[in-house]
């Protein structure tokens, strides 16, 4: 009898120890994923955390009035996606997207509405040719004793060794051209890696602030954005950077870094902007979205979201040179002066 009691007691206690999955009992229910709930979630989060409503003079409440009636409880996911994508497109921001398994909404008017003045075939035929150097993500070639460097993206890692090679090559060249046209951005560290080789003193190139709350003016104080000079070899001669409306996001930051260099000069067309760092979030139905959650201004207080202006604007039809890239030619002329 005593053994039986002991056994029962043992079994009950064992059960108490291991069979109490409290974490499963209190697990929250999945949020409502109806079209209306998804719309409300997206509209509210953008309302609370998007950073450029005032600068772009967007009445987000009015957008709700426009798009909310288009949400129907029996609409298909494809229809819902289109309505939500159209609503987000009102922000006219390349850092705003809705992502599903079947599509990605976007507004690329920051470059599609403008000529790009960039013919890749011409660049490779006339300037880079076939024997250009491939230095990490950079393509480099000597053009009239100038080192022409094409950087099509800041996505790929640019290392100190890559920049060591660029700086070494500059011993044999009279000037440097960095072509970042149609560079849609990437990792800001790659832009800093280049700029840090072009200065021997600390430079403040802009100021940044982040959203801190749902109010339109809920931001952190402005924080300086700086370039710290590389401790090793540097190139401190003239630098021409070529930009166009397709130069976006990190490339806008890079253009602004060059803007602050005393020996730097921007050629071509203004950048496309994209200075708001995108934050990512998820909807109740598993779709994700991103949106700008910060602002950057230059040293004069101008928002970089709308692009960095160039020193030498080359968008007039009379600037064009048949059979040549007039951005590169203008840069060479300046570097040869």
């Amino acid at each position: 009898m005593r053994r039986t009691n002991l056994l029962i007691r043992f079994l009950l206690l064992t059960l108490a120890v291991i069979a109490v999955g409290c974490e499963e009992i209190i697990e929250p229910k999945a949020p409502q994923a109806s079209p209306n709930a998804i719309f409300e979630h997206l509209w509210t989060d953008i309302n609370n955390r998007y950073s450029f409503f005032e600068e772009k003079q967007i009445d987000w409440e009015a957008k709700k009035d426009i798009y909310s009636p288009l949400i129907l409880e029996d609409m298909s996911p494809f229809e819902l996606f289109d309505v939500l994508g159209d609503m987000l497109a009102e922000l006219e921001d390349g850092h705003v997207n809705l992502l599903s398994t079947f599509n990605r909404s976007r507004n690329w008017s920051w470059y599609t509405d403008f000529p790009l003045f960039f013919d890749e075939q011409l660049i490779y035929d006339k300037y880079l040719k076939t024997d250009y150097r491939i230095i990490g993500p950079l393509h480099a070639q000597t053009v009239n004793d100038i080192l022409y460097v094409r950087n099509s993206s800041f996505e790929r890692k640019l290392t100190a060794r890559h920049m060591d090679e660029i700086v070494r090559l500059m011993q044999f060249h009279e000037g440097l051209i960095i072509d970042v046209r149609n560079n849609g951005g990437g990792n800001l560290m790659n832009a800093i890696t280049i700029a840090a080789r072009l200065t021997d003193e600390e430079l403040t190139y802009g100021r940044q602030r982040f959203k801190t709350g749902p109010g339109r003016s809920d931001f952190t104080p402005w924080v300086p954005l700086r370039i710290l000079p590389h401790s090793g070899e540097k190139y401190l001669g003239k630098v021409a950077v070529l930009t166009n409306r397709g130069s976006y996001s990190t490339t806008t930051f890079f253009a602004q870094m060059i803007n602050t260099l005393p020996q730097g000069r921007l050629f071509g067309d203004q950048t496309g902007g994209g200075a708001g760092t995108p934050a990512y979030a998820e909807l109740p139905n598993g779709w994700t979205y991103r949106f700008s959650a910060s602002q950057v201004i230059d040293l004069d207080g101008t928002q970089l979201e709308f692009g960095v202006q160039v020193d030498e604007l080359l968008t007039h039809p009379t600037d064009l040179i048949p059979g040549r890239d007039h951005f590169i030619e203008a840069a060479i002329n300046w570097l040869k002066e």
């Binding site: 999955g21 974490e23 499963e24 697990e27 929250p28 999945a30 949020p31 979630h41 990512y280 979030a281 998820e282 909807l283 109740p284 598993g286």
Partner: peptide, 16 residues
């Protein structure tokens, strides 16, 4: 160890 987690800054969904 079984765990679920929810971070409203990113998502209303439960990760487990």
């Amino acid at each position: 160890q079984n765990t679920w987690e929810r971070e409203f800054a990113y998502s209303p969904l439960v990760y487990k």
